[in-house]
Nucleic acid binder design. Structure first.
Lengths: 145, 145
DNA sequence: GCAGCTAACTTAGCAAGCTAACTTAGCCAA
DNA sequence: TTGGCTAAGTTAGCTTGCTAAGTTAGCTGC
């Protein structure tokens, strides 16, 4: 079959994401992408949409729509930046915080179980993945892009 | 920031896929997902849509639509299985073969360059990724799913 | 004090995932 | 030979990526 790295990464991630999405929808009534967005807003502390797009690895229009639906669902608070400029301050509502907190560790634990079952050394694989991301990021930035 | 493995895999793959998509559209006038589908049909030798879905890591409806547009574009040949049953035989047209062959090695080479720049050992990372995929697959199957 | 610039965001429309529900084709048992 | 079963594929409708193009808010120089 000769499956290569890029294809395997693509398929592995697609499956993990899909599994995560099913679990979250079934048990917590939220999609995986919405959960990721809320998680990062929580971690980034009152950032802008542009920053969130950067961290999520998606484009600004995608974030624009996402913040719209999350705000409509009462999970996210979107306010004009008091410091001025055409910016929005993003923060979690109480309900948003509650939702994220209740899910928090669950996923990493489940993924860790898969990793353990596979015999792949977790720390090393995680470190390699993080390093690849950083490198790819840098190369794209250098390429002018 | 404390970015975890599942998020990093998600973001890394999203970026790689997006970059691949841009290159393919610009230089070869085809999207990345269509290219992947054609590649796998080539490797799987006259398989069914269900098998292709399995290998691509997507659902059957997605493959159904994809084979439709690829056939309409003259890249894929979709025929009822002569052996009977409600199946389709998938194979590449000459144009499809030409297209896949002309792109073939390019991506793995580009990705290998990124991996090299990051200092991550390619063979090991590829092996770990493949192992995780196999394990996840097995666990999902065992879970009855 | 307005022209132009830049940064941040939005709108519009397309591509391609997904789930749920349906259809089609062959098989098998009564 | 028909009624149900299973496997494979399709349809419908939603979500959420994307790009291209447009808008809005403040800044800067004349």
């Amino acid at each position: 079959m000769e499956r290569n790295l890029s294809l395997n990464l693509h398929v592995l991630t697609a499956r993990l994401d899909r599994a995560a999405d099913r679990i979250l929808r079934a048990e917590h009534d939220i999609s995986y992408s919405r959960f990721l967005a809320l998680t990062l807003v929580g971690e980034l502390e009152a950032s802008t949409q542009r920053t969130l797009a950067e961290y999520l690895g998606v484009t600004e229009p995608s974030v624009s729509r996402m913040t719209g639906v999350l705000a409509a669902d009462g999970l996210l608070d979107v306010q004009p930046d008091p410091a001025g400029g055409n910016r929005r301050r993003l923060s979690l509502t109480d309900e948003g915080k509650r939702r994220v907190a209740s899910i928090r560790q669950e996923f990493e634990d489940r993924l860790a179980a898969v990793v353990a079952a596979s015999g792949v050394p977790y720390a090393e694989y995680a470190e390699h993945t993080a390093r690849l991301l950083t490198t790819f990021d840098r190369l794209e930035r250098e390429a002018g892009k």
